[in-house]
Design a protein around this nucleic acid. Structure first.
Length: 448
RNA sequence: GUAGUUGUAGCUCAGUUGGUUAGAGCGCCUGAUUGUGGUUCAGGAGGUCGUGGGUUCAAAUCCCAUCUUCUACCCCA
C-alpha cells in the first residue's frame, strides 16, 4: 500500500524535532523560572467536557472519536434515518480529541481542587487537534504551550504573563509585538454606543479591522443591524491609542471604566519591567474565544506574514461550568507550530543546534573495529556524543556518512593507530588532521 | 462548512492540438582514488504520471468521483 498521513498532520524529521525541542526547552525554562508547574491531561476528553466551550464554530472543529463496539446498534435511530449528523453524534461518540489546553485545564482544576493550592500556576505542552481546513501555519494537529494561573484576581499575573511572552520570544530571537486590550473596554465601547446587547457582533467585526479596514468593519456591523450612529461612534472611539481619552467616552459605562482601571493597574506592574519587544495597547484587539472577560493578549511576529503566534487572556469563570464558581484564571498560549514556521523562515536557530554526534569513529578491519569500540566506550563515558560506524567499511563510504550527518570530527583508527595508540583526529570543516592519544582527543572534544 | 487551486523520479520542476520507449537539474549508487568527505570526471539505478472509474484505436494530457496541497471565506495557534 502507499503510505500517507491524514491531512493537516505532518512527520517531523530528526532535524525538525531538534529544532522543535529547542523551542519547547526555551519556553519551558521561562515557565519554570516564573514558578509554573507542569501537568498533562489525556489526549481524549469526554465530548461533553468539550462541546459548547468554543462556540458553534468550535463544536464543528472538534474531532469526535467513534465509540467502540457495535456503535450503530446503540445509535439514535431517528437521527440516523433523518441523516442528522449533529443529532447522531451524541449517540455514537462519547469522546473527543482535545481542542485546546485551557478547557481540559479547567476540568483538571475542578477535579483536583482539593489536591492543589491556590493560586495554582501550571504550564502544559501538548498537542491539540482541530478539524479545520489546513492552510499555511494552520494544521489539524499542533502543539500548544500554555501557562495559566487560577485562583487569583491579581493583575500582577497579567503583567507576569506578558513578561513571560517577552522573555521567551526574546530568547528565541523572534521579534514580535505583544498587543494588550481588555474585554471590558470593548464592552464599554458597545455600552457607550448604546448597543450592549450586540457586543459579540461588534467584537467580531472589530477583530477584522486590520484585515478589512474601517469600511469593511462598518459594513460588517451594518449587516448585523447595528445602527449607523452607533457604528460611527464606535469607529471614532477605536482611534484611541491611549487609555486616558477613553474615560470621557465611558462616563456612563461602569464596565468600560473598570476595564481601563484594570489596564492601568496592569501597567503599574508591567512598566517596572524593561520589555525587549514592543508591548502596546490595541483597542482593536478582540480575540474570538468568548470565555475571556478581562485583559486579552495576542502576539504577532514582525518581519513575516503569519497569523498570531500566541494569545490569551483572563477568564473569570471558566471552571464554573464544571461546578466550581468564583475561581478566576488568566493564561496565555504559545503556538509552537507557527513559532516553528516563523523561526524556519527567518532562520533564527542557533548554529550549533544539531541532531548528531560530536565525533564519529571509523575503522578498517575487525581488529581495529573492536579496538575502536573500546575507544568509543571511553569517549561516551566522558559524556561526549559519539558513534562508531557499524562495520569496517571502505573509508570513503564512512567519511561520506560522517559528512552527510555533519559530524564535526572523525577519529580514524587503522593498524598503525591501534599499535601506537596515536589516533588520527580529523576536523571535518578545515580538513586538518593530527595524531593524538585518546585522552587528548577527549580533551579536545570537551572544549568544543 | 463555502469557493478556487495543486499533485509527474528521493527533492524542485518540464512534458506541444491526446500519438513510439515520459524528460531535466539536484540528490542517490558504482568507479577513477586497495587509508580520507565536502570539488571534478565517467557510468548506473530509480516513475502504478495521487487514487478509482469513464471517453478513445490510443490518456500524464479530455470527463467524473475521491484523496492530498495551497489560497480566500469562516474561524483560529
Amino acid at each position: 500500500m502507499k503510505p500517507s498521513i491524514p491531512k493537516g498532520t505532518r512527520d517531523f524529521t530528526p532535524d525538525q524535532v531538534v529544532k522543535r525541542n529547542y523551542i519547547f526547552d526555551t519556553i519551558r525554562s521561562v515557565f519554570v523560572k516564573y514558578g509554573y508547574q507542569p501537568i498533562e491531561t489525556p489526549t481524549m476528553e469526554n465530548l461533553s467536557t468539550l462541546t459548547g466551550k468554543y462556540g458553534e464554530e468550535g463544536d464543528r472543529l472538534l474531532f469526535k472519536v467513534l465509540n467502540n463496539g457495535d456503535f450503530l446498534a446503540k445509535a439514535d435511530e431517528k437521527a440516523l434515518t433523518e441523516k442528522n449528523s449533529n443529532k447522531l453524534i451524541a449517540s455514537i461518540s462519547k469522546r473527543g480529541l482535545r481542542y485546546d489546553l485551557t478547557v481540559p485545564f479547567a476540568r483538571f482544576v475542578v477535579m483536583h481542587q482539593n489536591e492543589i493550592s491556590f493560586p495554582f500556576k501550571r504550564y502544559q505542552i501538548q498537542p491539540v487537534w482541530r478539524a479545520d481546513r489546513p492552510q499555511k501555519g494552520r494544521y489539524q494537529e499542533f502543539y500548544q504551550c500554555d501557562v495559566d494561573v487560577v485562583g487569583s484576581n491579581s493583575l500582577m499575573y497579567e503583567a507576569e504573563l506578558v513578561q513571560i511572552y517577552d522573555e521567551a520570544f526574546a530568547q528565541l530571537k523572534v521579534d514580535c509585538v505583544i498587543k494588550v486590550n481588555n474585554r471590558k473596554v470593548l464592552f464599554g465601547l458597545a455600552e457607550a454606543a448604546g448597543i450592549a446587547d450586540q457586543f459579540m457582533d461588534m467584537t467580531i467585526a472589530i477583530d477584522k479591522l486590520d484585515k478589512i479596514g474601517e469600511d469593511g468593519v462598518r459594513n460588517e456591523m451594518l449587516k448585523k443591524e447595528i445602527p449607523d450612529a452607533a457604528i460611527t461612534q464606535i469607529l471614532e472611539m477605536l482611534k484611541c491609542d491611549a487609555l486616558a481619552p477613553l474615560k470621557n467616552y465611558f462616563a456612563n459605562s461602569p464596565t468600560g471604566l473598570k476595564g481601563i482601571e484594570e489596564l492601568e493597574t496592569f501597567h503599574q506592574y508591567f512598566d517596572l519591567y524593561e520589555a525587549k519587544n514592543e508591548v502596546k495597547f490595541d483597542i482593536t484587539l478582540a480575540r474570538g474565544l468568548n470565555y475571556y472577560t478581562g485583559c486579552i493578549f495576542e502576539v504577532a511576529a514582525k518581519n513575516i506574514k503569519m497569523g498570531s503566534i500566541g494569545g490569551g487572556g483572563r477568564y473569570d469563570d471558566l471552571t464554573g461550568v464544571f461546578g466550581l464558581k468564583g475561581v478566576s484564571g488568566v493564561g496565555v498560549s504559545f503556538g509552537a507550530a507557527r513559532i516553528f514556521d516563523v523561526m524556519n523562515e527567518l532562520d533564527l536557530y542557533p548554529k550549533q543546534l544539531s541532531a548528531t554526534v560530536d565525533v564519529l569513529l571509523i575503522a578498517f578491519d575487525q581488529a581495529t573495529h573492536q579496538y575502536a569500540f573500546d575507544c568509543l566506550n571511553k569517549i561516551r563515558a566522558a559524556g561526549i556524543k559519539s558513534d562508531l560506524y557499524p562495520e569496517p567499511a571502505k573509508m570513503k563510504k564512512q567519511m561520506k556518512y560522517a559528512d552527510s550527518l555533519k559530524v564535526p570530527h572523525v577519529v580514524i583508527i587503522g593498524g598503525d593507530e591501534m599499535e601506537s595508540g596515536l589516533l588520527s583526529f580529523k576536523h571535518m570543516e578545515s580538513g586538518e588532521q593530527e595524531k593524538l592519544n585518546l585522552g587528548e582527543i577527549i580533551g579536545r572534544l570537551r572544549n568544543t
